[in-house]
Design a binder for these strands. Sequence first.
DNA 1: TGGGTGAAC
Length: 669
Amino acid sequence: MPVDNRPPAKKMKFSPGGGFTNGVPVFQKLQQIRRNLPIFSAKRKLIEELRRLDTAIVIGETGSGKTTQLPQYIFEERLHKNMIIAITQPRRVAAITVAQRVAQERGSEPGHVVGHCVRFEDMTSEKTRIKYMTDGMLLREAILDPLLKRYSFVILDEAHERTIHTDVLFGVVKQAQKRRKLRNLLPLKIIIMSATMDVDHFSQFFNKAPVLYLEGRQFPVQVYYSREPQSDYVFAAVVALFQIHREEPADQDVLIFLTGQEEIDSVVRSIHEIAKGMVGDAPPLVVWPLYAALPSHLQLKAFNPAPKGTRKVIVATNIAETSITIHGISFVIDTGVVKAKIFTPRSGLDLLKVVKLSKAQALQRSGRAGREAAGTCYRLYTEEEFQHFPDNTIPEIQRCNLSSVALQLLAMGITDIVNFDFMDKPSTESLIGAVHQLHTLGAVIKENTIKLTATGKRMAAFPLDPKLSKTLLIALELHCLEEVLTIVSMLSVDSVLFTPQRKREEALAVRQKFVSSDGDHITLLNIYKAYKGVKGNKEWCHENFINGRNMSKAMDVRKQLRQICDSQTLAVKSCGQDTSIIRRCLAAGLFMNAAELQREGDVYISLTTREPVHIHPSSALFRCKPACVVYNELVKTSKCYMRDLSVVDPDWLYEAAPAYFKRKKPSKK
DNA sequence: TGGGTGAAC
């Protein structure tokens, strides 16, 4: 998550054990706050149950205090047997901020008894017993230690979000618990914490584990449905906003949920237009867009309180559903739609589609109006439409390419992936497809069982898509790891190009100096080099329409990948100016993502699926028509688009994977 | 000539 959105007013500085506010020691004050949380009255009962049970499901609404308090109760009662209590979170920022808060409550320094561990930031020590971490981090650790021997408790928090990592962890911790019991090791206690969703489902999966309910502290939200179905949700959202604006007090802010960047920018513009033309006594409006691709300084605008007598309107994607909390929202306008990525295992294709919400998601959105006071939610769909929404969002694990997950499971020693104990099993087709892809990359061999090769083991060490980790290993052989590390890092963060619609021409012109006729990969390499040359200067980023946040993330990723190379003693060498060797690597790693220009001129055909594909308009090669390309990913919107491409020689593809292309019969020149 | 919801190792 890009920004720290806590309001400065609540960001009191606490010093461990000391410090005073209004004459009351801070530590005492915090203990008082702890005792006032809804969970406190259930403390005795919870401890008793957790002492007795191996696995428990804890259900608590927002504000119950379960995330901060439950681990402390376990610690205070010494249930953890002086081992570590892990608490996983789907998001980095949550893991970091909650850990800091709990450290304050315990009057200890962050990183001592209470610590956090997220990618790029390990704030733990040998003293740490309460460890907040991302779910992906615990999964990484499970590769090195599938029995999770350092932990006596694993608490999977926000389980209802069903991130791909949490879903894999369900099976991993269940297996670890069972195997520890069989080997007479110290028991592993498992706690699943969730909002009120999927309760029975969780319980069933964990051998009918008991469910403990906690009271929450959420303000009531009045929900209104549209009387008629709306054909144009964008228009309806604007109408609803101005209805609120005319009738409600100015200090009550509005949050509108829409689907994407372009839609949001255009709605922000039309709200401005309409507000300008308004006569009468409606208060002034400030309107801010909010989506992940927005540079940080623009995102931060949404958090500033509006001037007195002014209404603030935030027009956001689902980033405001869970990831970012905006304070002071009284009204939510929910359009009932979201843009979602859907993976089709057969063609290996990501579809980006506007789809209906689930009931759970709609509830989450309306809840955003009741964080600090009673609020109102306008749903721009009828109650009957709502009844037809699916109950829950399809878990991520059923919507994603699983090659990375399959590699991780294999690295943990789990060979029978198709029969792995998933809470909601992905389709067999997509599991087999994932293993097949690993096989094609040389990461596994199929004998009686599926086994990781030496290459596969090396690949699993990298937090990357297997295609990209393979590309790194090829770069090692071809002595251009220096460059390919950079390219792979740039590919594994969100786009570093920021192209505002109104300054499109300017952005493209000023970035032209980075563009390489070899394609996007070399262009990304040029951008990274230039960025390093100016030492990550913010103004430079701004002038060149480069997203500084994502650039600095790419740099962090590169540093991490570099460390993994060093720890595996892989020599990081440079190829100097010879970009053809880099493209040779890319061809050898991405051969499954290759396409050829058809003789008739415009259209490319994917060598894997034989489907027509197109060069994405954001590509450096958009106006060029090279005969043969490899690409990083395929996205279907209005057409099938290849993103992040490089020009390659068809011979390189054949040389890299002769068996693969023998079957596919490429049209050799 | 057309578009990139959101997280994470």
